[in-house]
Computed example of a mutant assay.
Amino acid sequence: MNKVPMTVRGAELLREELKKLKSTDRPQVIQAISEARAHGDLKENAEYHAAKEQQGFIEGRIKEIEGKLSNIQIIDVKTIDAKGRIVFGSTVELLDEESGETKVYTIVGEDEADIKVGMISFTSPIARALIGKNEGDEVSFSAPGGEKHYEVIAVRYE
């Protein structure tokens, strides 16, 4: 199976979630199932069915995270000698040439992407256009809203 790139921060967040699921959430749902069983008839016991459903969700998420962690390639941008070039993990400050607005994005793995906090997937159209560019370069790409034009103001490796 191919390795999936992920930042150090993204891998750490996945490990923390896995730890919480195993050490806190799993024991809580087991306790809830035990308590619901004590109430008697399981056929009409809504608490029991809800707890079993929650248990299925937790176990599925544990397997999903363990699978992801076994196939990740952690990329620490601080160890890459990129010399101002945009690479995976870079934080990029852009100037929208049409609106004059400044935007800041960090290029991350698909599982870490969250546009609301400025984390974009390396597979997104804007990230594909940015990777390999340097400070001062102009970047154009096709977005769902039409052609976009940006100037790279700064590249940081955080």
Rank of each mutant, 00 (worst) to 15 (best):
F57Y: 13
K103T: 03
N45V: 03
E97Q: 15
P125K: 08
T106R: 05
Y157I: 06
V4D: 06
E101C: 11
I72Y: 03
D41M: 10
T106G: 04
E158I: 14
N45Q: 04
R128N: 11
A154Q: 08
L18F: 08
A32S: 10
H49S: 11
R156D: 12
F122H: 09
V117M: 07
E138A: 15
E101T: 10
E35Q: 09
T91I: 08
G136W: 07
K78H: 08
P5D: 08
V77W: 02
L14R: 04
G109T: 01
K52T: 08
K133L: 07
V104Q: 10
D41C: 13
K3F: 15
E93W: 07
T123G: 08
E35I: 09
A51F: 07
I33W: 03
E44R: 08
T7Q: 04
I131Q: 03
E158Q: 15
V29P: 00
A143T: 06
S70D: 10
G145T: 09
A129M: 06
E110W: 08
V152W: 02
G89V: 03
G56C: 09
V92D: 00
A36N: 04
I62C: 03
K116H: 11
V139S: 05
E135N: 07
H39W: 08
D137W: 06
E53R: 15
V29C: 07
D76Q: 13
K3N: 12
L69N: 02
S142D: 14
M1Q: 14
L94G: 00
E44I: 09
G84Y: 01
G56A: 15
L21Q: 01
A127W: 00
A36I: 01
I65M: 07
F57L: 14
V29T: 01
V104W: 05
T7R: 00
V117N: 05
I75R: 04
V108S: 02
A127M: 03
N71P: 08
T106D: 05
G132H: 04
G56K: 10
A50S: 13
E135L: 10
G118S: 12
Q28E: 12
I80V: 10
Y150S: 02
I30Q: 14
D137C: 13
F57N: 13
I30L: 15
V139C: 10
Y150A: 02
I58E: 02
E64F: 14
G56Q: 11
S90Q: 08
V152Q: 02
K116Y: 07
K103A: 14
K22C: 04
V77Y: 05
E101M: 14
E16L: 15
K116S: 13
M119Q: 05
K68V: 06
D114G: 06
G84D: 03
G109Q: 01
L14K: 02
S34F: 10
N71W: 09
N134R: 09
E59V: 14
E64W: 09
D96F: 15
I75H: 06
I126F: 12
D41S: 13
